[in-house]
């Protein structure tokens, strides 16, 4: 087992790199330790000698977009305090990619292509996962519709009662991606602080999540590129985070300056450890990493 999952993991890394190479993406690597992070209400960063360990490479990657790099990807470590469970590690491996001149719909397509590509090239130990990924028509389901189908209350009611996360985790997620992968899309505006508002409905953001076997694999969106709007959303996120005792450092001003130089772009983060779990048929994230924090 120890040998097989590490070699499977390596094969997946190589297949991912090959996919982006063939599509002429540039592989980048950016600093893990930053003086200020993008504030997010529900993420607790780890401090490192007065700076912070990145919770995602999003800040640096969008600054690279602003410098004129139009197609970039990165596989790197991210750190989130107090996240530990069968699907969570406080230090985990993330794949992120960003591209200019596309929106979240294009990105869902590209995400689907990536997973089909990887699944075909990796000697998977999980025929069940392969059958799901090989399905000809992946499901595209709006958050509103998903709550209507599976939730004990509607999306509107869940938001009013402050129960969105509970209903999502208890009723909706366990129903997603078992026959074919499911893209859950169009999230309430307050649940996408870095995503662009949907032009047809300003209560929603152009954000999606990919689910397979009830497990969230990836989160992507059309990028918000209005610096003023982004600044006011950061103020709100920082207030909520401060209430929970989390700090992200100073307002990321250089990021906001650079944001103005991006016209249209979309970006996505995919949990690599969870992708390895899927292709190995593993039930727990501990089974697909070389070391967990507990056995260091």
């Amino acid at each position: 087992m120890a040998f097989s999952f590490l070699s499977r993991r390596a094969e997946i890394f190589q297949a991912v790199r090959l996919f982006f190479l063939e599509r002429e993406y540039l592989e980048v690597d950016t600093p893990l330790r930053l003086p200020a992070l993008l504030p997010e209400a529900n993420i607790a960063p780890l401090e490192s000698s007065g700076w912070y360990l990145q919770t995602s490479p999003e800040l640096c990657m969008k600054r690279l977009l602003a410098r004129g790099h139009d197609k970039i990807f990165q596989i790197c470590k991210c750190f989130r305090k107090d996240e530990r469970g069968t699907l969570h590690l406080p230090e985990f491996t993330m794949l992120e990619w960003y591209r200019t001149d596309i929106d979240y719909m294009d990105l869902m397509e590209e995400c689907e292509s990536l997973l089909r590509f990887v699944a075909e090239r990796v000697a998977s130990q999980s025929p069940a996962s392969l059958t799901i990924l090989a399905d000809a028509s992946w499901e595209y389901l709006s958050v509103t519709k998903a709550f209507d189908l599976y939730g004990r209350i509607s999306l509107g009611e869940a938001l009013t009662q402050g129960m969105f996360d509970e209903v999502l985790v208890r009723d909706v997620e366990p129903r997603l991606g078992f026959v074919r992968p499911t893209f859950l899309y169009d999230y309430p505006a307050q649940l996408g602080s870095l995503a662009r508002l949907k032009s047809a409905d300003k209560n929603l953001v152009e954000r999606f999540e990919l689910y397979v076997n009830g497990v969230e694999l990836a989160n992507g969106f059309s990028e918000l590129t209005d610096a003023e709007e982004q600044h006011s959303r950061f103020v709100r996120e920082r207030e909520i985070a401060a209430g929970m005792g989390h700090s992200f450092g100073a307002m990321p001003e250089k990021f906001l300056d650079d944001l103005e130089r991006i016209e249209t772009a979309a970006g996505i983060a995919l949990g690599v450890d969870r992708l390895v779990m899927l292709l190995c048929g593993a039930e727990c994230i501990d089974d697909v990493v070389a070391f967990t924090p507990e056995n260091l």
């Binding site: 469970g85 999502l168 997620e173 602080s193 999540e209």
Partner: peptide, 13 residues
Amino acid sequence: EFSKPGKGQSLYR
């Protein structure tokens, strides 16, 4: 069971 939907809050089931 620890769960945390993307961008959501930590839930302890």
